[in-house]
Computed example of a mutant assay.
Amino acid sequence: MSLRVSRQGRLVDMVLDRPPVNALDGETYDALARAFDDAEPEDVLVLRSAARHFCTGQDLAEHQSDKTAEQAAADLRRGAAAVIAALRCRAPFVAAVHGGAIGAGALLACAADVLIASEDAWFGLPELQVGVTIGGAVAQRTLGGPLTRRMLLTGERIGAAQVATLGGARLVARHELARTAQEAAQAIAGLEQPLVALARRTWGNDERESAAAAYEAEIEQFLAR
């Protein structure tokens, strides 16, 4: 299984495990979407990686030059569904990032309520370089608008230390990543669930839903170009 999901009480551990670099194929996107959709409001999720990188985005081996426009659009929507499910997940979730978080991997990290990053982590948004225009609405939740635009337009990679300076992530040593993410999830689990749910709906006038809707609009505008 490319995504291992286990539960201990209210804590749900989601481990991306598709060696060598956690490139996402259709089945992994589907598994991620199901895991986020199946979460109960009282759960707390941790998304982490067992591979060399957190997630390097779309598995380019799945792209075929002979695919029809309809097939390519279906593939794009299939991948986007995982990110949208993360944003609309009823449960809060923590992302524990090490190594590269690229493309869809960066978007999954930016969809988290709490982002913990190791000192070796870095983020990349090569969407324009590979021919798509989507992702800005999600990435700017964590990276901010100006940095997100720069990354998308120039292909610049951003280290976790810079993201931490912006307040978007907590920076820890690599050997502390799993423990710190677990402690953050436990702290959230100890809160009164209805208050957590209310907070996530009302902060920023439900900014999570706003980001999801804006991301969907990005996709449809790209496909309609």
Rank of each mutant, 00 (worst) to 15 (best):
G105R: 10
G105N: 06
G105K: 05
G105V: 09
G105P: 00
A106H: 11
L107C: 08
L107W: 11
L108M: 08
L108K: 09
A109M: 05
A109G: 07
A109L: 03
A109Y: 02
C110I: 11
C110F: 12
C110T: 07
A111Y: 09
A111K: 01
A112W: 03
A112S: 14
A112Y: 08
A112L: 11
A112H: 05
A112E: 08
A112P: 07
D113Q: 07
D113K: 06
D113M: 04
V114H: 13
V114E: 12
V114R: 11
V114G: 07
L115D: 04
L115Q: 07
L115F: 08
I116A: 11
I116K: 06
I116F: 09
A117L: 13
A117Q: 12
S118H: 00
S118L: 10
E119C: 05
E119G: 11
E119W: 02
D120L: 01
D120S: 05
D120K: 01
D120Q: 01
A121L: 11
A121H: 10
A121K: 10
A121D: 05
W122P: 02
W122G: 12
W122R: 14
W122E: 12
W122A: 14
W122D: 10
F123I: 00
F123S: 05
F123C: 08
F123E: 00
F123Q: 06
F123H: 01
G124R: 14
G124T: 13
G124D: 04
L125D: 02
L125V: 09
L125K: 02
P126F: 09
P126A: 13
P126V: 13
P126M: 06
P126K: 13
E127M: 15
E127W: 14
E127F: 14
E127H: 15
L128I: 13
L128V: 14
L128N: 13
L128W: 15
L128E: 15
L128M: 15
Q129L: 09
Q129A: 15
Q129V: 05
V130N: 04
V130H: 04
V130K: 07
G131A: 08
G131F: 00
G131S: 10
G131I: 02
V132W: 02
T133R: 10
T133D: 04
T133W: 07
T133I: 12
T133F: 07
I134Q: 01
I134S: 02
I134E: 01
G135M: 08
G135P: 11
G135Q: 04
G135V: 12
G136L: 04
G136F: 07
A137P: 05
A137Q: 03
A137K: 05
V138L: 01
V138C: 01
V138K: 03
V138D: 02
A139S: 06
A139W: 04
A139E: 00
A139N: 03
A139M: 11
Q140Y: 00
Q140L: 14
Q140M: 14
R141T: 09
R141D: 01
R141V: 14
